[in-house]
Write a protein that binds this DNA or RNA. Structure first.
Lengths: 345, 345
DNA sequence: TTGTACGCGTTATCAG
DNA sequence: CTGATAACGCGTACAA
């Protein structure tokens, strides 16, 4: 079965009119008798006619589909972003085709290829951790292909970037820790090739400096994986070495922060009394654990929505990409929970 | 720009051959001189030729794209499933187009429409909580359209269903609680129109009965939303009424279980000493909270992968849908953590 | 070994 | 008000 999807031609044949007439009747073109319109529409409904979007795409070289390239779907933040993307795309009549790179550079490239084959109208991308050079994006940009980057954004000409204000979020979190009386604050940092990691490190440093605390590079520890296990081990190491004596941990993400909390517990240290902890992303579990984990909330949904709106505006020529010279920055919000609040000092 | 995507014709013109020759050369057809092949391929590479998948779809009435319809992307379990889907689809050369229904029936229907317009090769669906009748699926099935349902599966003819063994998972969880000495076990149930909810209730009841405990319908409480807030309130109510005196909670999902834990804490009850708690889904946070939440793990990734494999096998005629008469069931695993283990008693 | 012609479903254009 | 034709990019039966 399934063969029998009715086409314009079928309707035309049955009604003894030309297919162009049918096409026009269906779209309420001027200059078609009401009589014909009615008949056509009736039959169309009866035959359950459904326009073939593929044929349309071929004709218009537009697919009304946007491609989303994302490192991992199973990631609270990213899934939130996808949700925002899907929401806006749907409401504006676009399809979303999705690929995850699993943080692989090769897969990023091949996904772009297949999407191009599919005449995607534009891209929404957050690049992989492996990605170190951006020619595959630059080429497209040079050809005038619409791309909007989000969260993990490249520093290349013509790129349109949507990101959260990582600097500010980080700055706020660290300032808060300092105000609570914590002094030796470790930053469990992310991969240093990512702009977001760099920005967060910058915010961390500036907050310290602005509060008269000298930056100690030894307290900036990279956690490339960003898992709780990894940071648990790293934190345990730090706590062992008597030289460090940190009294707070600021995680580049919530998993890292949780790992630190667990390591503290393992070492017999109390959070927040002995050690303060703040994370980044505000995953769902932050409010469920005990003590609640303070965290910098990122507006994932809004980010996805915003990026999509911009992309679609560009695709529909409502917006000239040249006009956008600065990254679009979305505000973060520091959510303070127990893990960083000293009842007394 | 972007206009200048090279086509077969461009290559043909430049080489003074016909476009069919180019087409054949590109695909290593027999009966093309090596010389021509070489030239064609060279030029193709040089022009960065990329086959137009849309044209191909039109010709073959196949799009090599599958449509995924899911209630919510921002849901740990579903995002895991999507990941499995994407993985298999990618490895077999298919695109994934994604829509979320936000649990709305209308959106489910309209998504199906647009996907049909896009000549999707098949569907992967988990239906919305609002969905009460299934004609929109039955019609497709009757027309021979390939659909594989997962997790939330309908009870209609010809449907191919992939699900976890909810009954078994529930049975195991409740049996475990009983063995730990808990006796009055409340089940925070899901929406009763969903098969998964029903199955979990069935498992709950059978476990009680098999262990010689009489089922008390009052202890089965529906939590339609499945949020922690909701179940926290509901649990608080239950704990207030002196008649009930429950000593354990089995949640239809982890959020519900966490809500119950919070309510117990609020009421001054200790988990697991006074009250045992088990959840369902094994979300990431289960291992991060204190005490760790015991939970029934659902193999989301495998479910997505399995469903996709079946769908693609059907699409590619490697598998006859008629052959599948029973739901495909994936095993769950009970992960026991502190929240349900009594040190003594 | 290569070329010609047609069709997939739709719509824009030009003629009636 | 309506019809015929061409074109989007590709594959393929048929002819040469």
């Amino acid at each position: 079965m399934k063969i029998g999807q009715a086409t314009i031609k079928d309707i035309a044949r049955e009604l003894n009119v030309s297919s162009s007439t049918v096409s026009r009747a269906l779209k309420d073109y001027p200059g078609i008798s009401d009589e014909t319109k009615r008949k056509v529409k009736e039959l169309a409904a009866k035959l359950n006619y459904r326009p073939n979007a593929i044929a349309l795409s071929l004709r218009k070289s537009r697919s009304f589909t946007i491609g989303v390239i994302i490192p991992e779907v199973v990631h609270f933040f990213f899934s939130t972003v996808i949700s925002g993307i899907e929401e806006v795309a749907y409401s504006r009549g676009y399809n979303v085709i999705l690929t995850q790179t699993n943080e692989k550079f090769d897969r990023e490239r091949s996904s772009i290829e297949t999407m191009l084959s599919n005449q995607i109208d534009g891209f929404l991308v957050s690049y992989s951790k492996e990605t170190q050079e951006f020619d595959h994006f630059s080429n497209l940009l040079d050809q005038g292909y619409p791309i909007v980057f989000f969260d993990r954004v490249p520093d290349i000409p013509k790129a349109i970037n949507v990101m959260v204000d990582d600097y500010r979020g980080s700055y706020d979190a660290v300032s808060h820790l300092i105000r609570q009386g914590y002094k030796r604050i470790v930053h469990l940092a992310g991969p240093k090739n990512l702009t977001i990691s760099k920005e967060r490190i910058r915010g961390y440093k500036d907050a310290l400096t602005d509060h008269g605390i000298q930056v100690d590079e030894n307290l900036i520890v990279e956690c490339p994986l960003g898992t709780d296990d990894e940071s648990r081990k790293i934190t345990a190491e730090i706590l062992k070495s008597p030289a460090q004596k940190p009294d707070a941990f600021f995680g580049n993400n919530d998993m890292a922060a949780v790992g630190a909390m667990m390591a503290c517990r393992d070492a017999g240290l109390k959070v927040p009394e002995d050690v303060g902890v703040v994370g980044f992303s505000n995953w769902q579990f932050c409010s469920m654990i005990e003590p609640g984990l303070s965290s910098v909330a990122q507006p994932g949904f809004q980010m996805g929505a915003k990026a999509t709106e911009i992309l679609l505006d560009i695709i529909e020529k409502k917006l000239d990409p040249e006009q956008i010279n600065e990254p679009i920055t979305l505000p973060t919000e520091l959510l303070i929970r127990k893990s960083s609040v000293r009842t007394k000092n």
